[in-house]
Design a binder for these strands. Structure first.
Length: 561
RNA sequence: UGGGGCGUAGCCAAGUGGUAAGGCAUCGGGUUUUGAUCCCGUGUACCGCAGGUUCGAAUCCUGCCGCCCCAGCCA
């Protein structure tokens, strides 16, 4: 794992605002934030932005950031998600303050707060069905109408709530609602539901409850009970803020947290909707939540991305209240930057073509030293076996080519990376006329030197010994979606946008021998190809498996040849 | 047609009355045993539009346009 820490980053509206608050003594200068995922899916790259923001703000101002599961909907949540979320946050390099928390830790407190609100005449048990309630809520152009149960005596609501809790009523038969304003322009204020009946076991509280608090009632109060000062969420919760504030104002609470919103991350060529990601998994379009093509943190990790790259990425894109779409290339750039600096170099051939050095002894072997990194001597150098027969990349040879082609051409010279200069002299074909080998001669005086005639070969190609190399399975991943905006429409549109070439598995790719001893999650740059990671699960010494994280930047490929 | 937001170069994004940061992308050039990296250079941004206030406005006011979110007993 990279040890590079994310840069401190630039300013954003939240940093400025908190700075001002600290100057004016608000919250006694304290900054307490929280990352509040619902454990109903795996974390994705969008969550990384929120994580970096919440933990980053706390870190920047010497505050604290907690991890709190927003677990108020047991039917969609489970332990697997809880485990994965904790592991992802930890992997990103953040440490939450104190124990892992759950909104369900406060179910007793929340229940008492609900009773308090009933007693002050600000909440009531509504016996309308959800359908009736929906009809009476009205719409944007029609004010809602009060529930017939709206003005029932507190004692009656108190009793009914107790019986809801005791399991006396069916799901959907009644709910506890805050008494605010059925004619409010903001729909969230039209007597929002605080408790609904769900006869489902909860992953944390088991069968203790059959009524569960809604997000709006649970979230802000959990913040208050925990002493959170800055409750940061995404823009779509903006019109929940008046409700958030209404609860804080009308309840007796130990603190007055405030909500702030920022624009969620949108990345092109991908989807960041938990529902859609879950569908990709459930329908088998990918091999699980941690498929290296998934934008989940687990997937991105398996793809070979580093925590530092993700943190740098989040830092680069900034935080604001406008909703934009970030180019996926920026994320790719972030890993390239990190891996270029931290990944040792190695050689691997994806599409092997035999190269025979006719003037090299039949069983000759030389172990050539090659640097681990071209721009840093902090990397251990490696030994490469050089032999008469080598594998080179099929696309690195042409019988003839124009001047722009800088690789091996018949009658021309090229440098073998970390080794000698060779000149191609002949080609061997099979019955079908396909080239099966290239014959060449090498210049023994060119190890670390230019040819005696002073003419430097224009190109350099990579290679692996055909007799001493090992082989590996190499998985070439590309973007999961070919469609730039696969999340725009319905599920059908999303599936239509899948990239059919998102995975290209190459078996038996020659690799330099040292690569076989890589450990899972070791990262490398396969020179001239891209960055690769030994698969976290499938890689082993007897069966090396590498995943392509991202290809090298290729300015030549763009302009063609 | 209700409520809430957002609009600064191709993409992000600073900037809150004094005359437009930065990053990425792009396009040039240099170095290079990775067509990588690295280095240097490269942008006339009608600051959404139209008015107004002011000596002076991206920043204040008015009107308009465009885009996003909200009618779950989901979060």
């Amino acid at each position: 794992m990279s040890t590079q820490s994310a840069p401190s980053g630039g300013n954003n509206f939240l940093r400025n605002l908190i700075r001002e608050q600290i100057d004016s003594g608000e919250h006694q200068g304290e900054v307490v934030t929280r990352f509040p995922p619902e454990p109903n899916g795996y974390l994705h790259i969008g969550h990384a932005k929120s994580i970096c923001l919440n933990f980053g703000l706390a870190e920047h101002f010497g505050g604290r950031c907690r991890l709190r599961f927003d677990d108020t909907n047991p039917e969609k949540e489970n332990q697997e998600y809880i485990d994965s979320i904790q592991s992802d946050v930890t992997w990103l390099g953040f440490e939450w303050d104190g124990p892992v928390r759950y909104a369900s830790d406060y179910f007793d407190d929340l229940y008492a707060l609900a009773q308090q609100l009933i007693e002050t005449g600000l909440a009531y048990v509504d016996e309308q069905s959800s359908e009736q309630a929906r009809e009476n809520r009205g719409d944007w152009n029609t004010p809602g109408t009060d529930s017939p149960f709206r003005d029932r005596p507190p004692a009656e609501s108190l009793d009914l709530l107790a019986r809801m809790k005791a399991g006396e009523f069916d799901e959907g038969s009644c709910s506890l609602r805050a008494k605010i304003d059925m004619r409010a322009g903001n729909m969230n204020l039209r007597d929002p539901v605080m408790y609904r009946i769900r006869k489902a076991a909860h992953h944390q509280t088991g069968d203790k409850w059959c009524i569960y608090p809604s997000y709006d009632f649970a979230h802000g109060q959990s913040d208050a009970l925990e002493g959170v000062t800055h409750s940061i969420c995404t823009l779509e919760f903006e019109d929940h803020r008046p409700l958030y504030e209404w609860f804080v104002a009308n309840l007796t609470l130990p603190a007055s947290p405030r909500q702030y919103e920022f624009g969620r991350l949108n990345l092109n060529y991908t989807v960041t909707s938990k529902r859609k990601l879950k569908l990709l998994v459930d329908e088998g379009h990918v091999d699980g939540w941690d498929d290296p093509r998934m934008p989940t943190l687990a997937g991105i990790r398996r793809r070979g991305y580093t925590p530092a790259a993700i943190r740098n990425f989040c830092d680069t894109i900034g935080v604001s209240r406008s909703d934009g779409v970030i180019d996926a290339g920026l994320l790719e750039n972030a890993v390239r930057d990190d891996l270029n600096e931290h990944a040792p170099r190695a050689m691997c051939v994806l599409d092997p073509l035999k190269l025979v050095i006719t003037n090299y002894p039949e069983d000759g072997v030389e172990w050539l030293a090659a640097p681990g990194h071209p721009n840093s001597d902090a990397f251990e150098s490696r030994q490469l076996p050089f032999t008469r027969e080598l594998w080179i990349e099929a696309e690195d040879f042409r019988e003839e080519a124009n001047k722009k082609y800088k690789r091996l051409v018949l009658g021309k010279r090229v440098r073998l990376r970390n080794a000698y200069v060779i000149e191609a002299e002949d080609v061997v074909r099979d019955e079908a006329g396909e080239i099966v080998a290239v014959h060449c001669r090498y210049d023994p005086d060119t190890l670390g030197d230019n040819p005696a005639d002073g003419i430097k070969p224009k190109g350099v190609i990579h290679w692996v010994s055909a007799t001493h190399g090992r082989t590996a399975t190499v998985r070439l991943y590309d973007r999961l979606f070919a469609d730039e905006n696969p999340g725009r429409g319905d599920v059908g549109e999303m599936l239509a946008g899948l990239n059919p070439a998102s995975l290209d598995v190459r078996e038996n790719c020659p690799i330099e021998p040292g690569l076989a001893s890589a450990r899972p999650e070791d990262r490398f740059q396969f020179e001239r190809i891209g960055y690769f990671v030994a698969d976290r699960y499938d890689h082993g010494p007897n069966h090396p498996v590498f995943n392509r994280t991202v290809a090298l930047r290729d300015t030549w490929g763009k302009s063609g040849d």
